[in-house]
Design a protein around this nucleic acid. Structure first.
Lengths: 206, 206
DNA sequence: GTCTATAACCTGATAGAC
DNA sequence: GTCTATCAGGTTATAGAC
């Protein structure tokens, strides 16, 4: 009966690591506002005061987690977009497969990152050079050359939308039990092959 | 200098309507947890006590707004999916154009609805017959007939992802000033024609 | 470094005057 | 119906003992 304060993170970590690990989990799952510092402390199996000892405030702890998560979210495709030695078709396949693998491991990541960027916009997002990553990337150049009459963002929206949206919409399908975990994973595995095929069709289409 | 408590909603509404109108705006923009009942009262230009007088609690007020917003979100396409007299190709065009028009007027709606469903899942989502709307719809039947070897949800994910994702990801592009409001609207207008074309290509593709 | 206790503040909700 | 004042409980953060 006395197992209320059981830690849920690995016990053989430093206190600081236990806290940040717990913060990653709770912030990503519930978002900034719905997260209580007590939730994080309990998840880490430590005392609430230690959170403020290691990280001055909830806000500071959050900023650290958020920076990591943005790096994870945008860093997954940034190198692919920039690499001028990869063919356009191969880039598409890489973006899709990497995102599906990464988000499968971190299902709450997309809606967390996009929602928190919306809520903060100004401060957080421009830390990374997202603009140059997107606008001046080799990927966008290749799209412009292939289909000069269509804005390259159309294709980026298509690839990311088809890849990421199913994860964002998944809770809807969960509730109606239309799609259990295994079925969803199967679909997403299929999509690794299907999405690149469809996008290549768009690039060819009249 | 004494304009702090200025109401932002239309003044010629009943108090109850002013409150629910303010609640729609604030909840949709900030989500349940980040919303303070005081925010809603100020937005409505009324006193905090009146909120509890008309709606017993923050939770009750939220549930009312949420039910409306889910109806708005899913109701936009439900009739189209169900109508067995419409051709598959026409359904696709209708879904895309209706969603783009509706979300353009309510840009925060998709991430709000999907995020709150994720946070509540159990209670909220099954009130509407989403399951039968999706699984037993004429739309899904038509997809099965057209491409029996591909799971129909693949096409639904594609259509909704290409249509809705740009709105969800927009704050990212806002910050990097890659896309002002007019440019974004132009792109979304173009997508009303482009997305149906691309989807039809997928339906044909070997 | 880690804990308990508590300060300081915020938030949802209500009492009670008008 | 509407307001001011306030309560009760929760939340972040810190003081101080060990």
């Amino acid at each position: 009966m006395a197992m209320k304060k059981k830690a849920r993170t690995e016990p053989n970590l430093s206190t600081e690591e236990k806290i940040i690990e717990a913060a990653r989990k709770v912030f990503t799952k519930k978002g900034y506002s719905a997260t209580r510092t007590r939730d994080i402390a309990e998840e880490a199996g430590i005392n609430l005061a230690l959170l403020n000892y290691y990280f001055r405030s909830k806000q500071k702890l959050f900023e650290q987690v958020m920076a990591e998560k943005m790096h994870q979210f945008f860093g997954t495709i940034a190198p692919v977009l920039m690499d001028s030695t990869t063919k356009l078709e191969d880039k598409i396949t890489l973006i899709v497969t990497r995102y599906i693998d990464m988000i499968t491991e971190n299902p709450d990541l997309p809606i967390f990152v996009l929602n928190e960027i919306k809520n903060n916009s100004a401060r957080l997002a421009d830390r990374m050079h997202i603009k140059s990553i997107i606008i001046n990337s080799s990927f966008v150049q290749q799209l412009k050359e292939r289909r000069p009459e269509i804005h390259p963002l159309h294709f980026l929206f298509n690839i990311l939308g088809m890849t990421i949206f199913p994860f964002i919409a998944r809770p809807v399908f969960d509730v109606i039990d239309a799609l259990n975990e295994r079925e969803f994973k199967t679909l997403m595995e299929e999509r690794k092959k299907l999405i690149p095929t469809w996008v290549k069709g768009m690039l060819r289409a009249k």
